[in-house]
């Protein structure tokens, strides 16, 4: 990795030169209330994520990286600051608007895949499309394409418990890209996988980023996983330490 932390000033300087970032965060804070005490989780985060980036969020447990990811993905609300994704201030959206926004703009990849156990691989991938107006045949076409892309065209009728961890995560990736979202968020996508499967999943994410131009934000503990990303942002105790370019970029 190069030793070039992206300071706030540098971020602001970059912003002046390059097109507007897909994620724009200014002085973002998040605290949880426990009893009558406010427990800070994120403090004064300022960060820009350009379109087409593959950003790894790293930090020790409790550093706030998953919380930051949840805020960007619109499944949690910030306590203060500004957060715009694709030019839209998502903190101002109502709960129902936010649900619709997530359905159209965010692809989720979870550590434990989070597939519906009663649905086949095909049906799991199809699930986000149930929130669209697409016809049955259009949905079928898309799902088949997505599953082919992740190399599981021959496993469409399999239930999650009939698939390996790596295969399940690939189904989850197909589900994440099925609506062609603006942003893919991945929370420890290789955390539950063996080395080989983890490498396959990371290669797939890289392919999505490099070849299809998908913007990916990935939370990880794994330095190996970071190598798949373009940038890595470090967090500690709810504060941003800086962003580095991953070597080889």
């Amino acid at each position: 990795m190069s030793d070039t932390p992206r300071s706030d000033a540098a971020v602001a300087g970059d912003a002046a030169l390059s097109p507007p970032p897909i994620v724009r965060i200014r002085n973002l804070s998040k605290h949880y209330v426990r009893g009558d005490q406010a427990v800070p989780v994120l403090t004064d985060i300022t960060l820009d994520i350009p379109e087409g980036d593959f950003l790894a969020l790293m930090g020790p447990s409790g550093s706030g990286k998953s919380t930051l990811l949840n805020l960007i993905a619109g499944i949690d609300k910030p306590s203060g600051g500004e957060l715009t994704v694709g030019g839209l201030n998502i903190a101002q959206l109502s709960e129902a608007e936010l649900a619709d926004w997530r359905a159209a703009n965010i692809g989720f990849i979870f550590q434990f895949y989070n597939l519906m156990p009663v649905l086949t691989a095909f049906e799991n991938v199809e699930l986000p499309l149930m929130l669209t107006d697409l016809s049955r045949s259009d949905r079928r076409e898309r799902v088949e394409l997505a599953l082919s892309l992740v190399g599981l065209a021959d496993r469409m009728k399999h239930y999650p418990n009939e698939l390996s961890g790596g295969q399940q995560q690939r189904v989850a990736i197909a589900r994440a890209i099925i609506t062609d979202p603006t942003l893919i968020v991945a929370d420890e996508p290789t955390g539950d996988l063996d080395k080989k499967s983890a490498a396959d999943v990371l290669a797939l994410l890289q392919q999505l980023n490099r070849e299809m131009g998908k913007t990916i934000i990935m939370v990880t503990h794994d330095p190996g996983a970071v190598r798949a990303a373009r940038h890595v942002t470090h967090l500690e105790k709810g504060e941003l330490l800086g962003t580095e370019v991953v070597s080889g970029e």
């Binding site: 499944i75 649900a99 434990f112």
Partner: peptide
């Protein structure tokens, strides 16, 4: 509970 969280994250409303 996990499924409910996932479904909501995917965009299914309450």
């Amino acid at each position: 509970i996990g499924e409910i969280g996932t479904l909501r994250a995917l965009g299914f409303r309450r």
